[in-house]
């Protein structure tokens, strides 16, 4: 493990015994001196680590509990709200799982959204829509997938965002029959949703919520997906598909 250039000289032939002893003593003294500094160094690093950990702990606890922020998912006013209620910025996302650009937006901004929610800068309002139901050959994929997400958000909110991401990672093409109920169940189980919850997807118990959410979005003047708003202001254009743009806009809004 330890490699050092400090090579002790082998005793040269013919050196007297006294000279050898003297060299050994000099070597021992050198080693002793360095040993002291090494020990101080070890103690210093360990101490710095402890101090660092304590400071980290204090700064984290004073900014609330970001560790649980992304697990706070609540359904209210036909939206899923992810993050701390009193976060300074609200990001509203109107989406339909059948809409390819919604997937593009989500995949580009997933990490940024996760980080913004985790550090308490923003909360995300997910408005699920199903106006693209006619695009799935009669299987109503938009309603079924949105219903599944609401079911997860109600029963096991800690998996909602991962499930949302999983659906987008496996997003079917527009106009195809979409993912089957079994495929949605498999995706949910893949991110940790329990069998008891995923087994209820086919009941469509939250289809009314999705219909209501879609109607509320229309009433609010939403004409296309994805529509993204930062504190109610539209965030539009190609920038929404570029990772980082949304994040800096949100950070600016947070001041």
């Amino acid at each position: 493990m330890s490699k050092t250039k400090n090579v002790s000289k082998p005793p040269a032939g013919g050196t007297s015994r006294r000279e050898q002893l003297r060299q050994q003593q000099a070597q021992a003294a050198r080693e002793h001196k360095i040993r002291t500094w090494t020990t101080i160094g070890i103690a210093g690093v360990v101490l710095a680590l402890i101090v660092g950990a304590v400071i980290w702990g204090i700064t984290n606890s004073s900014t609330g509990t970001p560790s649980t922020a992304s697990r706070n998912v609540a359904t209210q006013d036909y939206a899923l709200v992810i993050g701390e209620q009193d976060a300074p910025v609200t990001i509203s996302i109107y989406q339909d799982y059948m809409c390819p650009y919604c997937g593009q937006f989500e995949r580009a901004n997933r990490d940024d959204l996760e980080a913004l929610v985790a550090n308490g800068t923003a909360k995300v309002e997910l408005h699920l829509m199903n106006f693209l139901d006619p695009q799935s050959q009669g299987t109503n994929f938009s309603t079924r997938s949105a219903n599944a997400l609401v079911t997860v958000a109600n029963a096991e909110p800690e998996y909602a965002m991962a499930f949302n991401a999983a659906i987008y990672d496996n997003q079917p093409g527009e106009g195809t029959s979409g993912l089957s109920d079994d495929e949605l169940v498999a995706l949910a189980r893949g991110v940790g949703v329990s069998d008891a919850v995923s087994a209820t997807f086919a009941d469509l118990a939250n289809a009314d919520f999705v219909n209501g959410s879609n109607a509320a979005a229309y009433a609010a003047g939403i004409k296309s997906t994805p529509t993204v708003k930062i504190n109610g202001e539209d965030f539009t254009g190609s920038q929404i598909f570029t990772a980082g743009a949304l994040r800096s806009a949100v950070e600016n809004a947070a001041g």
């Binding site: 002790s8 360095i34 090494t38 070890i42």
Partner: peptide, 16 residues
């Protein structure tokens, strides 16, 4: 010799 000297100087602990 070099490695043993390093041990006597406690460098192993510092490296880890």
């Amino acid at each position: 010799n070099a490695l043993a000297s390093g041990l006597r100087m406690g460098l192993d602990g510092l490296i880890v």
